[in-house]
Design a protein around this nucleic acid. Sequence first.
RNA 1: GCGCCUGUAGCUCAGUCGGAUAGAGCAACUGCCUUCUAAGCAGUCGGCCCGGGGUUCGAAUCCCUGCAGGCGCGCCA
Length: 551
Amino acid sequence: MRAKVLLVQQLKEIVAEMGLEWSEKITLEPPKDKQFGDLAVNVAMILAKQAGQPPRALAETFAARLKAGDSRIKAVEVAGPGFLNITYSEAFWQQTVQLVLRSGAAYGCSDSGKGKKVQVEFVSANPTGPLHIGHGRGAAVGDSTARVMRAAGYDVRTEYYINDAGKQMRILGYSVWLRALELEKRPVEWPEDWYRGQYIVDIAKEVLAKHPGLLDKTPEEAQDICFEYAMSNILEGIKADLKAFNVAHEVWFSERTLVQDGSVDKAFALLADNGYSYERDGALWFKTTEFGDDLDRVLRKSDGSLTYFASDIAYHSNKYDRGFELLVDVWGADHHGYIPRLRAAVQALGKPVDSFDVILIQLVNLMENGKQIAMSTRKGQFETLADVIKEVGSDAARFMFLSRKSDSPLDFDLELVKQRTMDNPVYYVQYAHARICAILRRAEEKNPELTKENSGEFSKYLVHKAELDLLRRADAFSELIATSAAHLAPHHISYYLQDMARELHAYYAAVQVLNAENDDIVTARLTFLKAIAQVLKNGLTLLGVSAPESM
RNA sequence: GCGCCUGUAGCUCAGUCGGAUAGAGCAACUGCCUUCUAAGCAGUCGGCCCGGGGUUCGAAUCCCUGCAGGCGCGCCA
């Protein structure tokens, strides 16, 4: 990051001196082959036409000027059709150690998000049953996206939207009531549509215990009681599951409040005022087709009740009212058809289209030894998130969910995720951190002087290739966070950590830390390792995964 | 039929704003434990980036088109 910032400045100056115009197409990146240097830039290829020179010649000019202008630059090579490969001095990279240690847990943070107010809404599962593994993926991605954005300087709030007003909720109350009837040996007529899970029976038992006269009340009253009890019970369970998964939403927002406080009516009025709604067949419609949807959508049904869409418009309007400049919703991919209409709503509310973004989470296939396990909430056979966490641990599950981009379906193999082997990258990364801690402990036992505080005076001894590789990697951390945040793609962190862990293990095998020639070198290496451990830990924290000190 | 997602090594997948000779893990094969954790390391093998056009200095990446797989197209939530 430091290197890039510096280089862009210098290149811009040179471009200006040469009377040329800077192009945003000029990019800086790691060179194809590490031996070519630290950074590659394509400036000559892009400016060749403008300058009226062949790229190669132009590149030579840039190379000469760059080298003359900065003592931190050790070498500039011209390669290929006009690439500049820039190598920074070792001293430049060695400074990274102190930069990391000074920033500590804040290393990697930046202000690239410029304090933009962002809300990330995720999970938001109907409180009709426990969370299953698919919700787990949404929880991991939503939570880590929020963490990454926060680190990148966005002002982030996380939220869970509780659908406590709809038809599913009535079915929930009804289902509990039916089970209560059954438990009390009363005649029961089983309908088509109800929740069959064992947890409904458990809740029914509890309701009966708390409300002895329940079944003597009218069915409506009884079902209301059942519903209220069931919902708060299930919600408590969901919160507990999320807590065990290292996820804590800041705000829990109830759908019912939207209807009660008039938000829905307000949204309707706004749409009507702007001519975006109309009555047809006794229903109220929203002209979403004006904004690219393929069909208009119903807001209020002919029986007078509201659609889910209606309260969702009110909800998103409410989000904007709270001052959020960017709304990020995390949805299951099976809801993708819903995006155009909500995007239409956003525009009808007078907000820019790009102020609303959706992370679609593709399906999770739960597997066991390569064979798929079926899940279905309605039929009551499913693998709950709680079960999965219990089985494989929160760390392994989170890392697994975050080691694939959200757009791709994910095979979650219980046996694989449980394995403490190379098939399971979470241990590989955690082990890298634990290994460093082990060396530091060992050094402490051997001679506490070795781990003494220092201000970088020993960094000059960090000249091994593996050390410089790791320092370059560490230097790129804040940029990684910034791009991950901008692309709402926390999985990049997971790949970065695996790369860094690989380099650390290579270093471990190649360099004897505690048996170096003299104590100054030992101190230099220990200080360096502290910095690398810090980066690993910061990265793992963004994923919501622990960084154990021993394994 | 329409829309969204996906298609990259034998397998599972990365590949950021369009950059050089497309990367990693697993699997397979060859080495490395008297030295800080072998849960590890070093190396070899492995490619028509689904096909076909186009855009340009330059395409896995952007556009068009075809094929294959997944998902979605309610006055359900």
